[in-house]
């Protein structure tokens, strides 16, 4: 039971990160119906941005306040990654609207290959470790054999995710941008006729998705303390799995899917075999896509003839 509780906490932490990335997939899919294959690499890139700013702040400027460092790194990473998201959409996806149906996906694969190799070229192929920012843990329960802990890191990750999701939810549900975005999801041409700037709405969607990926990237760095240029691929696929599992296009679904994937992965590693944890995620992806492509909270798609 103690072991289970500990794994549950670990799983939720991991799931929070997946959920944040999954939101980017699900928003883009909702609005332009494309799988943004490069999203995982945007996440990886944001992790590098966070890493470098962390180093600048701590070793060059000598900041010692953990909260301040974390906050600055988070905000800077969000801004710079959002710029990447904007630029990618502008250069690689926008010109393809109305092209043949696989073109955006192929372009996205191109962007994905480009990003991971770009980071490899400019930053080198080796793993980049950072010294742990926070080490403290809260002991939740203790007996002779086992201790259930919640580390500060995990607490920060879960709190940040929850706070950002609340803000994000408000943005999509209550603001005019949110309305414009939902309108574009339903019918892009009609939205344009009603005076919504569709291009800008789509751009903003990418910007938001990238910013959320940056949050995930920063938290990932905080949690694992190491990042490499190839770290975008597998978390990217898992987050996509989460988005599909939750019902692609559904925002709560993405978070729910992320938590489920995080939990499954953690429990799978803890109880079955750690070697096959990625296989488990990929299998879930295949099974969900075959048997329930609309996911848990998504709407079934009616084929238009």
């Amino acid at each position: 039971m103690e072991f289970f509780a500990q794994q549950f906490i670990n799983g939720l932490t991991l799931g929070s990160i997946y959920g944040l990335i999954a939101l980017g997939y699900t928003m883009v899919f909702g609005i332009i119906g494309m799988v943004n294959f490069a999203h995982g690499d945007v996440f990886m890139l944001s992790s590098f941005i966070a890493l470098i700013f962390f180093l600048i702040l701590t070793s060059w400027l000598g900041l010692t306040s953990v909260a301040l460092v974390f906050l600055i790194v988070l905000i800077v990473a969000m801004i710079l990654t959002a710029l990447w998201g904007w630029a990618i959409e502008r250069v690689a996806y926008r010109p393809l609207r109305g092209s043949f149906r696989l073109a955006p996906l192929i372009s996205a694969i191109g962007v994905s290959i480009f990003l991971s190799n770009f980071v490899q070229v400019v930053q080198g192929a080796r793993n980049k470790p950072v010294p742990p920012l926070v080490r403290d843990v809260i002991v939740l329960y203790q007996n002779e054999q086992y201790t259930v802990t919640l580390s500060y890191k995990q607490a920060i990750i879960m709190t940040t995710t929850a706070l950002l999701l609340a803000g994000f939810w408000y943005l999509v549900q209550r603001t005019s941008f949110g309305r414009a975005q939902r309108a574009c999801e339903q019918d892009r041409r009609m939205a344009a006729l009603l005076g919504i700037n569709v291009d800008r709405t789509i751009s903003l969607t990418f910007v938001l998705g990238a910013a959320l990926a940056a949050v995930a990237g920063t938290l990932y760095l905080l949690y694992y303390g190491v990042v490499s240029f190839s770290d975008g691929f597998v978390p990217g696929v898992k987050a996509f799995t989460a988005a599909v599992l939750g019902g692609i296009g559904s925002l709560p679904g993405a978070v729910l899917g992320g938590l489920i994937i995080g939990l499954i992965e953690t429990f799978w590693s803890a109880y079955f075999s750690i070697e096959y944890k990625d296989v488990a995620a990929f299998l879930i992806l295949i099974v969900v896509l075959i048997f329930k492509p609309s996911g848990i909270l998504g709407r079934p798609e009616v084929e238009k003839v």
């Binding site: 590098f48 941005i49 890493l51 470098i52 600048i56 710029l83 080198g124 470790p129």
Partner: peptide
């Protein structure tokens, strides 16, 4: 320029000790 900050502007390398150098 915006995109190059900081991934191109600063290269991280494993230094003498355990930490990274910019």
């Amino acid at each position: 320029l915006g995109l190059s900050i900081p991934v191109v502007a600063y290269r991280t390398d494993l230094g003498q000790g355990t930490g990274l150098e910019l």
